[in-house]
Simulated assay, not measured.
Amino acid sequence: MRTTMRRVATAATAVAMTAALAACGYAKEAGAQREAKKKRTGPLTIGLLLPEDQTARYENFDRPLIVKHVKRLCEGCEVVYNNAKSDTSAQQQQVDSMITKKVDVIILDAVDSEAIAGSVRKADKAGIPVVAYDRLAEGPVSAYTSFDNEEVGRVQARSLLKALGDKAGQGKIVMLNGWEADPNAALFKKGALSVLKGKVEIGKSYDVDRWLADKANESMNGAISSLGREEIIGVYAANDGMAGGAISALRSGGFDPLPPVTGQDAELAGVRRVIAGDQYMSVYKPYEPEAKAAAEMAVALGRGRPVDAGTTVDSPTTQDIPSTLITPIALTKDNVAETVVRDGLWKTGQICTAKYAKACRAAGLT
């Protein structure tokens, strides 16, 4: 038995050494190719891959802001853009296309952070650094920028508890968490649970497929049927789209007044619901500093310069990734004017249509 174990251990050691040497050789090869590709001067070609077009932010804000900051930093630089429309396979093909086009850097917001790891490795092997944007892709990414996503969950949870007040012990809440393929969803949930546990009873909790509003609506209807209308005192919805689906289900279920519902992203429909009192809060994540950080990281990597980042984070596959994390802000009807309106995310005229005119006046927006 001892001889067998010794042989197994020796074999395992040999395999480990072989793997380590292979990994070292791979790293040297990728590093050499990256060094050869670095452009100290002249225009760069930067690939921008965003995950979906259901959430308004990506097409309306992230894309134009990233392009603006790249152009500001890098005269003559080109941004080549694709949106995966929530299709993991499509995004993998888009990375392959960027490699074929020999772009200098890729800014990647992954549809599925685990599934994209092989594509990130391909890019790395081709000498193309990858900036993980908003979601931390697995694989050898060179830099990462996002919001403090656990803090997003804590902000939502603290707001919900504030809205519930003394009612927190008088019923149950429903949790509508984000899509489990999105690593941010797990961080939002972790942050929220760190605040909610022991303070309020969670009656039902769902991970909502692809963050879809209609799936959130289905889950909310299921929770109402299971728990009963009298038991539900609040809803943790991880983003504004799902909050809208939940509110529709609550109205159909006869809730009047509506219980407090959280959200995230400060989408126009969500901001209007906040002003009207239908949705208690959203989370405002100023896209400008996130987009600016991504552009700065991409240009630095393309120029062969070190990334200027405030901290480091670890993914399941890569440690000490240079990272810039931005602080989220709780958005309620009390601070719409000094957040999303002041920063130019939405104009008062966009928010305060005829339907919301009275609520806007009450909130001091008009």
Rank of each mutant, 00 (worst) to 15 (best):
R154V: 02
G76K: 02
R229F: 05
K85Y: 10
A238W: 07
H69E: 14
I46Q: 01
L187P: 02
V105L: 10
A223D: 00
P259S: 04
I326M: 12
D104K: 03
M1L: 11
I128Q: 08
T332P: 13
E78G: 01
V299A: 06
S142Q: 12
A9D: 13
C77N: 01
G277C: 06
A11H: 06
A295N: 04
G302V: 00
Q92N: 15
G76W: 06
S194I: 03
G191E: 00
L136M: 13
V70F: 04
D134Q: 11
A14L: 15
V105P: 12
K71V: 04
I233E: 04
V155Q: 14
S89I: 12
E138R: 10
D182T: 06
V80H: 01
V103L: 06
N177Y: 02
N82E: 14
R272M: 07
A110R: 07
I46V: 13
R72V: 02
E35V: 09
R6E: 11
Q279A: 04
M5I: 15
S113M: 03
E29M: 13
E267T: 12
L331W: 11
K102P: 06
A330K: 03
W211A: 03
T317Q: 11
A110P: 14
T311N: 03
K204S: 11
Q319S: 15
Y206H: 12
Q264F: 10
C360H: 05
V274W: 01
A36R: 13
I116K: 13
I224G: 07
I233C: 06
D278T: 14
E59W: 08
G254S: 10
A223S: 05
E201M: 02
A362L: 10
E75F: 09
I173G: 06
T312V: 15
A84P: 14
I106W: 03
G234N: 09
E288Q: 10
T339I: 06
D265E: 13
L250T: 03
V261L: 10
S142R: 08
G234P: 11
R158S: 12
I202P: 06
A30E: 01
A16N: 03
V120T: 08
D343I: 09
K333N: 13
G234T: 12
G171W: 02
P257V: 03
A12M: 13
Y144G: 05
Y280D: 07
P140A: 10
D62P: 07
S219Y: 15
A143M: 09
D334S: 14
D166E: 15
R154I: 02
M1K: 10
L227A: 12
A27C: 05
L49E: 00
K347C: 02
Y26H: 06
S205H: 01
T332V: 10
L164Y: 06
D109M: 01
A266S: 15
A276E: 04
E290C: 02
G31E: 09
